[in-house]
Design a protein around this nucleic acid. Structure first.
Lengths: 340, 340
DNA sequence: GCTACATTATGAACCGTTTCATGGCGCAGG
DNA sequence: CCTGCGCCATGAAACGGTTCATAATGTAGC
């Protein structure tokens, strides 16, 4: 009945007092109940209920040092690609009774830093990061200080940091090759900033393929940087392109959300897909196949990316860094091909 | 140059020693730099860099007691509805320099409990929860112990806990009313378990509307509980329904992901939508309008839900609990109506 | 030269756990 | 009866920060 002082949470000492035992015993009840006589244990448990005691995680961790949580920092929590990866991570972590906390950097380096620091300061076992910048020096520093780091969805430029990625250059090639095969010679690429490695790599792949086909990227390719990597960004970019007058015959979008915005806009503007403009997306999210014009997209093994990343992190900080690279595949549908 | 012992992170004491000052001074440099002479400050900062010191968040928090982080526990991190809400939360938190950690309960009460405990033990300012069960006694307990709690997407049955919800009974009514207006008299409702309040409420709304129209729910309505609240769940459920032989003329899905699975399956099976079977979803996610058969759906103000919830949490633990209830709207499209 | 006061730096107390050396106690074996 | 051992419970040290009363030093005013 008698609660401890107005706003202070009950501590282990309060419980000990209430149960008439020492703090050590309460701690034992909490952590190694088998070492405590059943009678004593019950008294302590009663006191815990009575005071509705909740362990102070900070104190616990301060002393014990470790915690079975890992953090994930993704670019955009509203992008199904990243959340599918997150589900893969969760599935793997669950097996080892680890927990996952997800944070979203919103492509912003300072937000990424902030969450990174937060995770590190709180002593998580490790962090999986989709970096918002090309420079990963800050991640190396975290790694050096003993926190596990796995790069998500982008290859590591450093041998000491593990990564699970998909070959984005190849992805760009696949998309470009397909559009070339369909007869397009003027392609717009609605891309994100090149500071995001995936964007730079996909661009590189596209250019490579154009050059291989004997085209001059300077004329055959127009790259537009979207304001945000989602449907709104796609919509704004395609509108700009349409208003500019010289409309390309094909649009390659850096992800399916951007493609969604493009398709939406083209439909509103009564521009036929793929007849007037072909559209290719990236990620092959769940709804891509069900759109009014089913979306051609570059598929990545999302779930598997998450699982492997968690694998690597759980291998522990002393395991040798590994660099997993998956290959993307192209899924052709109606948005880019009459046959699709 | 001389790093501290092999695997121990540098502590404030190490920094103090290296800089030739006391620990108190280091702490001041960290927290109130203006109180430290520039010269001293620089020496300390140099030592911090040198030792690549990172504050121990647990120790800091143990003493300081507070932390500017809030947690969110949603049912499914891969559901755009929840991540849109999360973005709303983030946007609001950002203004007050709070950070958000998201966890996914996967509809599982024990996972919800686990994350809840994790958040509470680590002393977050508050938690926003989409409860996986009808019983929220455990949330009340958290609240009583001084951690802020806001119910997300479901009304609070308790006056002491704030909530930001959308009228789900009304949502069910809107969907049912619409299908009745379209002439359907045998409706399948692919629903989640009634332990999830939203599911129970939407069911109630459907039944209400059927009764109001003079129909007997026992014959006019068949409720099927999906195995999971996503496309796979929807697919499995509709397959079961098709195989059972007596196919209803309309399917109402508890969310748009389930509806996506249904649409996908119906297309594969060459069943015309809405001619053979009408489909209505819930949430009006971004892609709903762009599907091959644009999806009729009950729209909820996702972003606004997140913003308001964060508002309430940031009001502090002593503010009076508030119960915000938004009204859903029906967006009619081609999946349920020829005119849509 | 002395006092009053402002500015900086100090170091010990404290936060709430876990851990571990220590001690009390009962019991079996000799 | 004594020894040795196993079982429980104890209480203090330790984790790494923050905070605060206090000390040291410098400066201004009289």
């Amino acid at each position: 009945m008698t609660q401890p002082a107005a706003h202070r949470r009950a501590s282990i000492a309060d419980v000990a007092r209430a149960a008439g035992v020492s703090v050590g015993t309460v701690s034992n009840v909490l952590n190694r109940p088998e070492r405590v006589l059943p009678g004593t244990r019950e008294r302590v448990e009663a006191a815990i209920d009575e005071l509705s005691f909740v362990r102070n995680g900070s104190a616990r961790q301060l002393r014990a040092g470790t915690i079975t949580t890992v953090g994930a920092i993704v670019l955009d929590i509203a992008n199904p690609f990243f959340t599918d990866v997150a589900r893969g991570i969760e599935e793997r972590l669950d097996r080892d009774d680890f927990t996952l906390m997800v944070a979203s950097s919103d492509d912003k380096p300072d937000r990424e830093q902030r969450y990174l620091r937060l995770f590190e300061e709180h002593g998580v076992q490790g962090v999986m990061v989709v970096p918002a910048t090309d420079d990963i020096e800050h991640l190396l520093a975290v790694r050096r200080r003993g926190t596990g780091v796995v790069l998500l969805d982008r290859p590591s430029s450093d041998p000491s940091i593990s990564s699970v990625a998909v070959d984005d250059v190849r992805g760009g090639e696949l998309a470009a090759r397909h559009l070339l095969d369909e007869g397009h010679t003027r392609i717009a690429f609605l891309n994100g900033p090149h500071t995001i490695r995936q964007c730079a790599d996909r661009y590189e792949g596209v250019v490579k393929e154009l050059v291989a086909a004997g085209l001059d990227p300077a004329t055959a390719l127009v790259e537009i940087t979207v304001s945000s990597l989602n449907a709104e960004g796609g919509e704004a970019a395609i509108r700009g392109l349409l208003e500019s007058g010289d409309r390309p015959t094909a649009v390659f979008c850096v992800n399916d959300l951007v493609a969604l915005g493009v398709l939406r806009t083209l439909r509103t503007e009564n521009i036929a897909v793929p007849a007037d403009v072909a559209v290719v997306g990236y990620d092959d999210v769940a709804f891509a196949a069900e759109l009014s014009t089913p979306l051609t997209s570059v598929r990545q093994p999302t779930h598997e990316i998450g699982v492997r990343a968690a694998d690597l992190l759980l291998d522990g900080p002393d395991a040798a860094a590994e660099h997993v690279m998956f290959q993307p595949t192209l899924v052709v549908r109606g948005s880019s091909s009459a046959v699709g």
